[in-house]
């Protein structure tokens, strides 16, 4: 490799033809750019505009300035939604990532039937948002559900895990960790991308498995860890489906699972306050964008790229 590099450098010095790749970039980005202008931009900017109106879905929007934004800050349920969402993001994202990475390492190689296990462990993530799920959760987490039956066997009296305000959010976090399939698959793909020659070289150097993990796997996997972190964060802030299903769309019991997006949906479609919902959405965008920006800045210190 070093040789190639050497040669490449000489060649480049000789030809000196590199400027930018503007033309190629235009070509490669053409579909994306068309999509951005034609499909993504209008709804995005329309919602920004609507966030300054009293749009009700059924009535033409009327300009109200920043009224929606100021109203948000005197809405106790808005703060409850923020609290629920932040708690969820802070607890569940790291937990899920650790679970996903751990399982990806276990299921990576070295055992027969791993393909089967991988598929089995991915199954819960396949379930999606089917209405059947609400019934399944009650079966497992209900006051008379499976978990409490197991607990009763040990003489412990359980709770209605999804129906008690003190436990519902915790249960949703567990549920989220349980569907670690997607990040796990991405980790698996990432592990496969690590060239085996590094391990061989390290093995020749006499590095143990732990050291190989720390010095090769982790550094080379950091772009993927970073990707999962950023995307899980963006996704967790917008958590909707699980909470919608478990609480029957109310964010209950007693607003304990009133996720930000759930509240926003309730406002937009339930109360016909789409202007307010749009304002909430753009406030959320600011939060997420801020978090993501911090992530990108921080990534300079721990993510390794080859370029």
């Amino acid at each position: 490799m070093a040789v190639i590099h050497e040669v490449a450098r000489t060649r480049r010095a000789a030809t000196e033809h590199r400027k930018g790749d503007g033309r190629a970039a235009a070509l490669f980005l053409a579909p994306w750019f068309v999509g951005l202008v034609l499909i993504t931009a209008f709804p995005l900017l329309a919602s920004l505009y609507l966030s300054f109106t009293d749009y009700s879905l059924l009535r033409a929007p009327g300009w109200v300035g920043i009224e929606n934004y100021t109203a948000m800050f005197s809405d106790p349920r808005f703060f409850q939604a923020l609290k629920v969402t932040f708690t969820y993001v802070i607890v569940s994202v790291p937990l899920q990532l650790v679970a996903a990475l751990g399982l990806a390492l276990v299921l990576d190689k070295g055992l027969k039937g791993l393909a089967f296990y991988r598929s089995i462990y991915y199954l819960p993530s396949l379930l999606g948002a089917s209405v059947a799920i609400a019934i399944l959760w009650r079966q497992v987490f209900g006051a008379d559900g499976l978990i409490n039956q197991v607990l009763a066997f040990f003489g412990i009296e359980g709770q209605g895990w999804v129906s008690h305000p003190d436990y519902a959010l915790g249960t949703l976090i567990v549920l989220n960790v349980w569907t670690f399939g997607a990040p796990m698959v991405i980790f698996l793909a990432g592990l496969r991308q690590v060239p085996t020659m590094y391990y061989e070289a390290a093995a020749i150097d006499g590095a143990g498995r732990l050291r190989q993990f720390r010095n090769i796997t982790v550094p080379l996997l950091t772009p993927i860890i970073f990707f999962n972190l950023v995307l899980q964060l963006i996704g967790a802030f917008q958590t909707f489906t699980q909470a919608y299903i478990v609480s029957g769309g109310t964010g209950g019991p007693v607003d304990s699972t009133l996720f930000y997006t759930l509240y926003l949906y309730e406002k937009g479609f339930g109360s016909f306050e789409m202007g307010y919902a749009s304002a909430m959405a753009w406030f959320l965008l600011l939060i997420i964008a801020g978090m993501t920006a911090v992530n990108f800045v921080a990534s300079k210190y721990w993510v390794f790229y080859d370029d």
Binding site: G160, V162, S163, H164, G252, P253
Partner: peptide, 15 residues
Amino acid sequence: DASRSVEYQNAGPEG
């Protein structure tokens, strides 16, 4: 109790 009431409320006629 309260927990069970919430659960039954979400269960529709069948549940």
